[in-house]
Simulated assay, not measured.
Amino acid sequence: MNTPVRVMVIDDSAVVRQVLTGLLSQAPGIEVMAAVADPVLAIERLKLDWPDVIVLDVEMPRMDGITFLRMVMQQKPTPVVICSTLTDKGAKTTLEAMAAGAVAIVTKPKVGLKQFLSEAGDELVQTVKAAAKANVRRLAAGRPAPLTPVAKNTADVILPPSTARAMTQTTERVVALGTSTGGTQALEEVLTTLPRVSPGIVIVQHMPEKFTAAFAARLNTLCQITVKEAENNDRVVPGRALIAPGGRHMVLKRSGAQYFVEVVDGPLVNRHRPSVDVLFRSVAKCAGANALGVIMTGMGDDGAVGLLEMRNAGARTAAQDEDSCVVFGMPKEAIKRNAAEKVIPLGAIGQEIQRQLTL
C-alpha cells in the first residue's frame, strides 16, 4: 500500500484551515497531519513531526510566510505550496515566496469558500501530490503554477494543426519556452544570463492571472533583456521576452518578416490557460525553421505535442534534463515523443538560446 502524502496547512483564517483540511483529507493518498494558525505554531509542531508537503499562506501575524519558508528551506528543504489570495499586492508577495523556494501557487478567494471547495478542490489535490514528488535538491538551491482540472482539450480548440510548412529560414529568430512547476526560478536563472543582444523570446509559464504581470515585472528588474507580460500585437524582437498572461492563451503571428503575438481567450488546453501546446503549435506554423523550442520543468504533459510539431516544422528543439528539473513531467513526455533533439541541463539553456543568433 502506498504511503499517503502527509500535509501541514498553515493559515491564520480558521475558515480557510477548515476548508483546506476538508479538501485534502477527503482525497485518496493525502493525510493532513496538522493545521495551524501561524508559522510560530508550525515551528513548535515541526519539532514533533515533519510533513511531506506544506500548504502555506504568505500574509500572517507573528511571522510572515516568506520568513518561515526561508527557515524551512535552510533547516530541512520541503516542498511548499503557496495558497494565496488573488490580488495585485498578494501576487508580488507570493512571487517573493516562489523565489525563496516554493514549488507552486494555488489561489484562494477572499469570499466564496464553498465555491472554492467545488471548483478548485482537484487543483489543490493534484498540486499537493505533484509537489510531494518535487526535486527538493533543486528547491534548496533556490531554483524552483498549478493544475486546473476539467476536460483535457488539445490545442485544436484554439488553432488547427498546420497543413503547410512554415516559410524558409530567415534572419529573424524566435525562441519559445514552456514551463510549469519550478519554472519561476528556472526562467529567472535562464533569462538573467542573457545579454541585451538576444533573440526574441515568447514564454508560457503556468501561472494564475495577476501573477504573470508581477512575475514579468520582477524579471524585468533582474535581466539585461526587457521582460513584460504580453499584450495583443506586441512585437517579438531581439532583446525582449514576452510572457503569456495568466488566464489567456498566447499565439505567435507573422506579418511579412515581422513576428508579433496575439493574446486570446478560449478553453483550457491540457488543463491549462495559457497552454504551452498552443504557443508551440503557433510557433511551428508561423516560424518553422526560424525557431527554437525548449520545454522545461513542470508537471503533466503540456507542450510535448507542440514541441514535436515544432521539430517536424524544422525548428531546433530541446528539453531540460531530469537532474536540473524540479518536476520532470513535461520534459519527460516530450522526450518520450522524440520531440526534443537534445536534452540539456538548465545551465545550458541560455547558451542554446544565444546559439540561435549564429545559425
Rank of each mutant, 00 (worst) to 15 (best):
I105M: 06
T297H: 04
Q26H: 07
T358P: 01
A37Q: 12
M310A: 02
A319L: 09
G200I: 04
T221C: 04
R138Q: 15
L292Q: 06
V237K: 13
A104Y: 01
G246N: 02
S118G: 09
R271S: 08
F328M: 05
G65R: 01
T163M: 08
V103E: 04
V227M: 14
V9W: 14
Q185C: 03
V58M: 12
R6S: 07
P77F: 02
L279A: 05
A145Y: 01
A99K: 14
E209L: 04
T193S: 14
D52H: 13
M330F: 11
M310G: 06
N220H: 14
T358V: 13
A27D: 06
R137M: 08
M63K: 06
K336P: 00
L117N: 15
L252E: 02
P79V: 08
D52N: 12
L56I: 00
I243N: 01
P51R: 03
D302I: 12
G256K: 02
L159Y: 12
L24E: 11
G266E: 07
G29R: 09
Q356P: 01
P144E: 08
P77T: 00
V326Y: 03
D12P: 10
Q258K: 05
G247I: 09
M296N: 03
A120P: 00
V81C: 03
P160W: 09
T3Y: 00
A291W: 01
Q26K: 11
D323M: 08
L292D: 03
